[in-house]
Simulated assay, not measured.
Amino acid sequence: MKFDNPEDIVQLTPHWEGERFANGRPKVPDDILRRLRNITLEEAWGALWHRGYHFQFEGDFKIIHPDRVMVGRAVTAVMVPKRPDLHDTLLKYGHEQEGRKGFFNQWVIDTLVEDDVVVVDLFDKIHMGTYVGGNLSTAIASRTKRGGAVIWGGIRDNQQVVRIDNINVFYRGSDPTAIADVTMVGMNVPTRIGKAVCLPGDIVLGTPAGVIFIPPHLAEPTVVQAEKSQVRDIFGFIRLKEGVYTTAQIDAAWDKALWDDFANWFATDEAAANYRHLSWENELTEARRQKRDGSPSDVRL
């Protein structure tokens, strides 16, 4: 076996057709990451749930900075309890064949780049299961700039970690002990975090409610759907305050007249300025078709 094997990563992520890192990990564009920082967890969840991705969210965490949103590309690792023969074989292989330094958790952190998030299945181990402390959290912050870690296990040095501004850490518990009696059996492989599944290159969206893992090929559709939902809500709130429509009209499938009103507002109102990269051609075409058929548009976002 190899750690962080490009051929395996490409095989695991065949739906991604964009740029990749040297190790094969999908590289979702920076602009998509920027836009994802402005959506809610529920908006991302809905876009994935309706596409059949039902195991992407986990909420049972403690959070170093619970008021901050974290977005980044996943670098995954899987740990298991220490079995001496397996442990010695893999540690020796990493040191001698792949030139890695230190312990398993350091191998992962040494590979991080800007906007990465470490995602680690540490089998919910907290005592002697502290994946990072002050030093390694500082290294994560330095390498990722605004990333962090999602750890299904423990951390230590909380009082130091909480003072690191440009990092967030989602974790299960704290303990003063150092990491011990664990072995890494996979790096950038499928990883289970509670009831969620994360693959290398997934976009990690960490919020006060928990963490959701967005497959890279669905990152852009997810953010587009979320942004469309947001700007429709802005329009709806304005029109409701003006008394133009009832809540039943806004919440139901829109007819062509309402879509036309929205399209004109979207093109001219300053409140829609940040959303004008969005295209509504499919929705407007469907509204026109439905009008010809004599029924309201059933396009929903």
Rank of each mutant, 00 (worst) to 15 (best):
D124R: 15
G59K: 03
G129T: 00
E227D: 08
D157F: 02
V75A: 05
G133K: 03
L33P: 07
F213Y: 12
K291E: 14
A226Y: 02
G94S: 07
E286P: 04
D115P: 04
G201Q: 01
A209F: 11
D115M: 08
F213E: 05
I109T: 11
V204Y: 03
D298Y: 09
K125R: 15
V161A: 01
V231C: 06
I109A: 06
S295R: 15
G148N: 05
V162Y: 10
D298N: 05
T130V: 00
W152F: 14
N264P: 00
F123G: 08
T285G: 07
H217D: 09
K125A: 08
V113N: 13
E114Q: 10
W49Q: 12
M128P: 00
R83T: 12
Y245T: 12
R35W: 06
V118R: 12
A219G: 04
L258A: 01
L48M: 07
S137E: 00
E242Q: 14
R276D: 07
Q11D: 07
L48Y: 08
D124K: 15
A209D: 13
D85Y: 14
A272V: 10
N282W: 13
I9K: 04
Y275G: 01
S142N: 14
Y131I: 09
K92A: 15
A271G: 02
V169I: 15
R172D: 02
A248Q: 14
F170L: 03
E96I: 13
L90H: 03
G153A: 06
V132A: 02
V78Q: 05
E286V: 12
I151W: 06
I39V: 12
H87V: 02
D30H: 13
K228S: 04
V120L: 11
G186H: 03
M128G: 08
V224N: 01
E114H: 07
V197E: 09
G133I: 00
R156E: 01
Q97E: 13
A271W: 07
A271H: 12
G52D: 04
F103Q: 10
H127W: 11
L278M: 04
N23K: 09
R25I: 15
R73P: 01
Q11S: 13
I63Q: 11
K241C: 09
V162W: 08
G99S: 03
N264E: 14
D110P: 02
E17L: 11
I39W: 05
I63V: 13
E281K: 13
I250S: 02
G59Y: 08
I140W: 03
W152S: 10
H87C: 01
S142K: 14
A271C: 01
M70L: 15
S297F: 06
D116P: 00
D121Y: 07
A263Y: 09
N5I: 04
A74P: 02
E7H: 10
N188D: 02
T183V: 09
A44K: 09
